[in-house]
Design a protein around this nucleic acid. Structure first.
Lengths: 226, 226
DNA sequence: ACACGACGTCACAGTTTGGTGACACAACCC
DNA sequence: GGGTTGTGTCACCAAACTGTGACGTCGTGT
């Protein structure tokens, strides 16, 4: 369970409140701090979705916060600064930042950049993944197809999640047996096939021509979005 | 063996060559085009790691290329433009671009932004090798030729992968029989030949004049890119 | 030019593989 | 207990795959 939201770190109170207000208006939930120390505490405790860090901060500066964050997390980071010379940008991005934005910034632009970064980070980190009509919520353990909830049994769900964890990759039957079932299973069994078939019957519009779970004859199965 | 690199699309020849040179100097492998149509073909056929698209292009513009790319792939995209007004940026990012860079751009900065995006996209990257029009994805066990997926049977795929594992090397029939088939096979048979022939029929534009799998009379076969 | 061995080509039948539905059994819930 | 649900197994079938051998073609050395 994660608390969604933006972490904003900016020492100038007027800029801070202005940005906080603007981002809130764009529909984000924002928490803001004035120092890097507070920001690091917040990140450790609350796991925000993304951090927007001013580079010039008293104490630990934004670049350093970014470096430390990178060591412990994949948390997306946008660096924000008044200085826009090339060296600063290069240094900032090399510290692990995902984007580098020069102040003053139009709120709509910042919002668009936030969304662009979240969009990419989401596929890897989020609890909810979307493949066309198919939505898999790993947190709620729920699967919906075109808005309608699909009931999957525990085993089916585990198998589907295992396939989805490696999108586009072919997973062989032995691997799936180990990952989804207890490793105490005979190597040759139609168990995986039967389970795949049951999942298909539930999530594939035309089970005979699967769109999500593809058979790779002689090797195994591959989950790939349509 | 070549690894797919950066796709650059820019209609102004002088800017294009300048950027291509600069990026090559930074250690990237760059392919460049002047139009969106060519770019889309290239993407389908060669699966680059990242695309850098000028927004203002004759025919299909960069934004539209970006939109179409997003529909079929997770390919990272950087939009490049001379116009830097806010609305453009928002529209560009909402079309699915990962970053939006305003020209003129310092090569080091562009390089840093490329690396920042690749860093984040990397987690989803699978191991593909590209030989001209031929793309072999070892994770997905998929082979595509000029963007079209080629169906290979298990044995054909195993043989092709074995050949590709040693690009430029001549592999003799006995070795291939051991590696691809069970080692319990008679040494002399047309088996390898027949399988090579079947692969050629699928991946070689003119099977009679093979470009990928070459016969080395008296020794065996060699896979080498065109 | 000729012979010979190496390789390409092809069709086909036996085998393998995976889809499918049925079924038995265990677990679970009223 | 009686019904319901989930799960593993099996048998059967269609489709796909593959090895084989016969034959054609090509390259090479004499």
């Amino acid at each position: 369970m994660r608390v969604a939201g933006i972490l904003l770190v900016e020492d100038d109170p007027s800029v801070r409140t202005a940005l906080e207000l603007a981002l809130t208006r764009q529909g984000h939930s924002v928490t803001s701090y004035a120092t890097g120390e507070e920001a690091l505490d917040h990140i450790r405790a609350r796991r925000p979705e993304i951090a927007i860090l001013d580079v010039m901060l008293p104490g630990i500066d934004g670049i350093e916060v970014c470096r430390r964050v990178r060591k412990l997390d994949q948390l997306p980071v946008i660096l924000l600064t008044a200085r826009g010379d090339d060296l600063d940008i290069v240094v900032g991005l090399e510290a692990g930042a995902d984007d580098y934005v020069v102040k003053p910034v139009e709120p709509r632009v910042l919002d668009a950049r936030i969304r662009a970064i979240l969009r990419r980070a989401e596929s890897a980190a989020s609890d909810r993944i979307t493949f066309g009509d198919l939505v898999i919520d790993r947190g709620a353990l729920k699967v919906t197809l075109a808005g309608k909830e699909i009931h999957l049994t525990p085993t089916e769900l585990r198998l589907l999640l295992e396939l989805v964890r490696h999108p586009g990759q072919v997973l062989n039957r032995r691997y799936l047996l180990r990952a989804v079932w207890d490793h105490t299973h005979i190597a040759d069994s139609r168990l995986v096939d039967a389970c795949v078939q049951r999942i298909r019957a539930k999530i594939e519009p035309k089970p005979a021509e699967p769109v999500f779970i593809h058979t790779v004859r002689g090797f195994g199965y591959r989950f790939s979005p349509p």
